[in-house]
């Protein structure tokens, strides 16, 4: 009991705790201002922001374990046990990172080389695969649908031949979400969807008269179905996407013209 009273009296006072809280708050504000683009500091920092932020966080970390968790005032064995775990955790983290970074060629190349398009179970192919043999230019019908209530098309790749008269039938079986089907120039799906947000549902979430847009359906309400008919453009890779705000990050695929 005497031993406990002893270290209790060593504890910081109320005012000291308030001061510690203020310091922790102040460091967090500094961290935020460092990376806040409107403060303009982040542009001057460049890569040095990372050691700076890590350092500031380490200070906060140390203050909390030293004062709030009283390691500074407590028996050293408690601190040793914790710091040992922390050090081991740090080493494991560094080891894991080194292991992956040390792989030759990098994981990105590996992932891209081995990427398999995600296919929903029991789903029938909604479109032709890019490897299908080319067919003569002519009328082509493509059926595609949204996958249930998910933010996904039933196919991640569609292919046609240049000059084809393409009829896309887009079914939306979702109970809650509206979608559309838009064919755009390669790599522009997010930019088009971003600009399309201004058009609103009345404008079908598609920017009017935009050269990046090849074709689009109107917005398809839950349970609805729409068609769009257009002539396949010059050979190359295009994208198809739902431009409903936010959906473009998940609902898209390649539209390949042979």
């Amino acid at each position: 009991m005497a031993h406990q009273t002893e270290h209790t009296t060593n504890h910081p006072t109320f005012m000291q705790y308030v001061l510690i809280a203020i310091v922790l708050f102040a460091i967090t504000i500094v961290e935020f201002v460092l990376i806040w683009d409107r403060a303009g500091i982040v542009d001057h920092l460049g890569a040095s922001k990372i050691p700076l932020l890590v350092g500031l966080s380490a200070v906060k970390f140390a203050i909390v374990i030293m004062y709030y968790m009283h390691l500074k005032f407590d028996n050293r064995l408690f601190g040793t046990v914790f710091i040992a775990g922390l050090a081991l955790a740090f080493i494991v983290g560094i080891a894991l990172l080194s292991l992956f970074v040390a792989f030759e060629g990098g994981q990105r190349d590996f992932a891209e080389a081995n990427a398999i398009p995600y296919v929903e179970h029991g789903e029938e192919a909604g479109g032709e695969s890019p490897d299908d043999p080319p067919v003569a230019a002519g009328p082509v019908a493509i059926a595609i649908n949204a996958v249930g209530d998910a933010f996904a098309f039933s196919s991640t790749s569609l292919s046609v031949n240049s000059g084809d008269e393409v009829t896309v039938t887009f079914d939306n079986p979702s109970a809650t979400n509206s979608h559309n089907f838009v064919v755009v120039q390669n790599g522009t799906k997010d930019a088009v969807a971003g600009d399309g947000a201004a058009a609103g549902p009345g404008g079908n979430w598609v920017p009017a008269g935009d050269s990046r847009v090849i074709a689009n359906t109107v917005v398809v309400a839950p349970g609805g179905s729409e068609q769009v008919i257009f002539t396949a453009p010059a050979p190359g890779t295009y994208q198809f996407v739902c431009t409903f705000p936010g959906h473009n990050f998940a609902m898209f695929g390649d539209f390949i013209v042979h």
């Binding site: 922390l86 983290g93 990105r108």
Partner: peptide, 27 residues
Amino acid sequence: WVFLGSDCLFFAALIATYMVYRGQSLV
């Protein structure tokens, strides 16, 4: 304290995994 020390390892594994895959998303 032993539990908290071991919990550091738990979170370190998850944090390291995040860092390993940082910037590796294909979509």
